[in-house]
């Protein structure tokens, strides 16, 4: 039996190009976000938090959508697509990290702009619950069982989590509408965004999307290697034992 050669790294020419592009875009984002773009009339320099916050929330939702699509794929294929399952898992891990960045940066911005860390707004509450849901998703991925079983189980959680988003958002909005008028968030949306600010946000979204692709490719390959190691270690241990026997005689 020929064993497939193990790659020395998870990088390829494509990931290197994406990685360099992500670094360039990030440098560009830093330049535009911190130096070139103006401070906001109302929010002052706090508006610069948005250049991290908005791309993070975009990335997190993108990651969860990728996880959901891969989860449906896994369920349709009855768990027999390990590559798709790994992309679902890698994407969810990155989504959770950037959801945390979103929540923290949002709360810091809220403290400066609204005077409070938290508002019981539909978007904020949905985001927080979604964050917990995907922590649960990652916990399900860590359960023991065969790879196919694990893929199917986590795919079920991935599908339910996405079905949850509109229901949670709707219920929280209905709940808040009885208690208060339009929230600060809603009025903020009507504010005209300065052209340069919008462009900076756009640069941020591109940069973060490139990071997302780069992270997913590497993480999914690391997962594939981990699966390979797990599969191979037993075979190799047996082969080593078999090789030892003639050398050591019939002992």
């Amino acid at each position: 039996m020929t064993t497939p050669t193990t790659p020395r790294s998870t990088g390829t020419r494509a990931t290197r190009v994406i990685g360099i592009a992500a670094i360039v875009m990030s440098a560009w984002l830093t330049l535009f976000g911190l130096v070139l773009s103006p401070a906001d009339v109302a929010q002052g320099d706090a508006v610069r938090i948005m250049y991290v916050h908005v791309p993070s929330v975009w990335l997190a939702y993108l990651a969860f959508i990728v996880t959901a699509i891969c989860s449906v794929w896994v369920l349709v294929a009855r768990g027999r697509v390990p590559g798709v399952d790994r992309v679902a898992g890698a994407s969810a891990e990155i989504g959770v990290v950037f959801m945390a960045v979103t929540l923290v940066s949002g709360m810091l911005w809220g403290r400066i702009t609204w005077g409070v860390y938290w508002q019981w707004d539909a978007r904020l509450t949905t985001t927080a619950l979604l964050f917990i849901t995907y922590i649960g998703y990652l916990a399900v991925r860590g359960l023991d069982g065969s790879p196919e079983q694990r893929a199917r189980r986590s795919a079920v959680v991935g599908v339910v989590a996405v079905a949850e988003i509109p229901l949670v958002h709707w219920s929280v909005r209905l709940w808040r509408s009885l208690h208060q008028e339009a929230t600060v968030l809603d009025t903020d949306l009507d504010v005209d965004i300065d052209g340069l600010m919008l462009f900076t946000l756009f640069v941020g979204v591109i940069a973060f999307t490139l990071w997302f692709v780069w992270f997913v490719l590497h993480r999914a390959r690391v997962m594939a290697l981990a699966a390979l190691v797990e599969e191979r270690s037993l075979d190799e241990a047996l082969a080593e034992r078999a090789a030892e026997v003639p050398a050591g005689g019939q002992n």
Partner: peptide
């Protein structure tokens, strides 16, 4: 694991 999975998903039920 079960509470972590169930509680966020049933939050709309708790509200309603």
């Amino acid at each position: 694991l079960l509470p972590l999975l169930v509680v966020p998903v049933v939050s709309p039920v708790l509200i309603g």
